[in-house]
Write a protein that binds this DNA or RNA. Structure first.
Lengths: 132, 132
DNA sequence: ATCAATTGCGTTATGCTATAACGTGTGCGA
DNA sequence: TCGCACACGTTATAGCATAACGCAATTGAT
């Protein structure tokens, strides 16, 4: 999918996520954008929906947060599965694509005649820096 | 981990989940247990916390729901990763363990010196029955 | 040019998910 | 019998997400 021109709200949300050191919740984004005129959660969620659709933002289901795609130049959808390692100390996220894991899961799904549409692979733990 | 005797509330919640055809949200469980005296969400969440700890129940992060472990005789923790295929039509869930995927992810995490603690692999789509 | 359809936007209200904080009772070992 | 751990019950609150309404701007076909 090619990413169309972002609207004002979409750009504001995307910029916040791009500059963030860690994933942000929708309400945290809302708070950071109050000075820019944001007043309601829906303004954030609507922008996020589009950014997710364009593949430039990921939703981290296990922590109800959102993060800018770490590989914006490639097309995340073509990667198939995307995995995330989420540090519970510092909050930082590593994004990871692996075709082996991808194929293995897809083969199993195929054997079950299951049509996959969206996937979530999230590992929570502690990153190298925080495992002092 | 060996599963201790369940308390009354834990048993009630576990039985509901065991009999359910699909994952249930905490509030759905609450509603189903009102006749048994449940009145507040915490009664459900506290039971769920223990059942999760014992490994007899899984939390599906992507749909905020809970499901009884499909392989109660084995120890889910020793399986390493557990994957779920969740049908968005009928709600049914297939549970799946694969050492290949497991090792591959763990190797990558190890190379990043990331200490994994909890993992989530959830694929949403449509099952064979619902892909008419 | 005009009308209809689409899309984004703003607002209010609401619903769903999860936990904090308090107190009670029970069982059990020191 | 004292103290501790644990399960439980209740009220209140925090955090996450969407429904439903209406308005404005854009586009594109007639």
């Amino acid at each position: 999918m090619t990413t169309p021109m972002l609207t004002k709200n979409q750009s504001l949300v995307f910029d916040i996520l791009t500059r963030a050191e860690a994933p942000l919740s929708a309400y945290t984004i809302l708070d950071k954008l109050r000075d820019q005129g944001f007043r309601a959660p829906l303004q954030v969620y609507r922008a996020l929906d589009k950014l997710l659709e364009y593949g430039v933002v990921h939703r981290l289901e296990s922590i109800n947060s959102f993060v800018a795609c770490a590989h914006p130049h490639e097309d995340c959808h073509s990667h198939g599965l995307v995995a995330f390692a989420i540090c519970e100390s510092c909050g930082q996220v590593m994004e990871f694509h692996d075709h082996e894991v991808d194929h293995r899961l897809m083969d199993w799904l195929k054997s079950q005649k299951f049509k996959a549409e969206k996937s979530t692979i999230e590992i929570r733990g502690h990153c190298a820096n925080c495992t002092a």
